[in-house]
Write a protein that binds this DNA or RNA. Structure first.
Ligand SMILES: [Mn+2]
Ligand SMILES: [Mn+2]
Ligand SMILES: [Zn+2]
Ligand SMILES: [Zn+2]
Lengths: 157, 157
DNA sequence: ACGAGAAACGCACCCGAGTTGCATCTCGGG
DNA sequence: CCCGAGATGCAACTCGGGTGCGTTTCTCGT
């Protein structure tokens, strides 16, 4: 979108190096460990909005524990590296927040959940304008709320 | 809102009679049973957006089973008597949909969930206007979506 | 009024996601 | 290289949702 296209060294920018990921962790006051690097690596190479179960599945061959992955996701979210949202499907979903390639959208943005297939789509750039009367909580009128939409996706029309 | 104010027999309209509730059930093809009448009675006298746990607690002295209450809520939702929404708090919430006093809002409307205290407020009359570009699912641009907002309520400011 | 049969109930039990306590291990600063 | 804060692994628990099944009960047709 923005025209600023920095011609990087071409290849090394595609995925962050282990060193870079370690720096990301240490910068957040977190130790660099194997499962943490694996989780970060996954988010950077796959991107998107992932649940704890998805991450755990993708990494289960490495032998990491459920609880470990869980705590890592929470820690990374608390450190601001991941966002942690609960769309209406009873599942926490995590997403890369800032920095590093692989983060499709770095800003907060509304999400859309298909009530049929459960698919999640991100709606950056979509803004919703409040029209109704007052009576709503102040945080609503001040646009300090997160927005979730539910309906049928195009496929499940 | 609409000016049409039918002067009813004054007193009998405050809460629906058992006979009326039975009619509501039978009209939906459902048998009239004690737990069902109790659930309906609860919604009509309390109104609002209630979870399965809340209903079960409120009625537990009557000795009804968890599963019974659960299935009743689902059945009433499928019959269109209740709405069943999953706000982002891992809980199904039910609300009177149409008919009968006690139903504060009969239309679909956005809900607001406080991320701190978990309180839910209904935002009838609040409408949100889509501003962003396309790329969103068709159901979004056609306003065929349910909307949920999350943030801090005035109390938890 | 009554009996048959479908519908609903109660109980037991399973599930998945989230969450925690605790013993053991390991990263990394000194 | 050592030590201790911090992280991991394992087990166990909660909570809400959901289901299978035998028993009870409502409703409808006789
Ligand atoms: Mn997103
Ligand atoms: Mn409402
Ligand atoms: Zn879909
Ligand atoms: Zn609150």
């Amino acid at each position: 979108m923005s025209a600023r296209h920095v011609a990087t060294k071409a290849r090394s920018r595609v995925a962050p190096t282990v060193k870079e990921l370690q720096g990301l962790l240490r910068g957040a006051g977190l130790r660099s460990t194997a499962p943490r690097l694996a989780v970060l690596e996954y988010f950077h190479s796959h991107g998107g909005t992932n649940s704890h179960a998805e991450i755990f599945d993708a990494l289960h061959d490495r032998g990491f524990d459920r609880a470990t992955i869980y705590r890592i996701l929470v820690d990374l979210a608390e450190a601001g590296i991941l966002s942690r949202t609960d769309l209406g499907d009873h599942v926490w979903r995590f997403e890369l927040r800032r920095g590093a390639r692989g983060a499709q959208h770095t800003e907060e943005h509304p999400h859309f959940v298909c009530v049929d297939c459960g698919g999640v789509s991100c709606l950056p750039g979509l803004s919703l304008k409040v029209e109704g009367q007052a009576k709503a909580p102040r945080s609503v009128t001040k646009n300090k709320v997160s927005i979730q939409l539910k309906g049928l996706c195009d496929d499940c029309s």
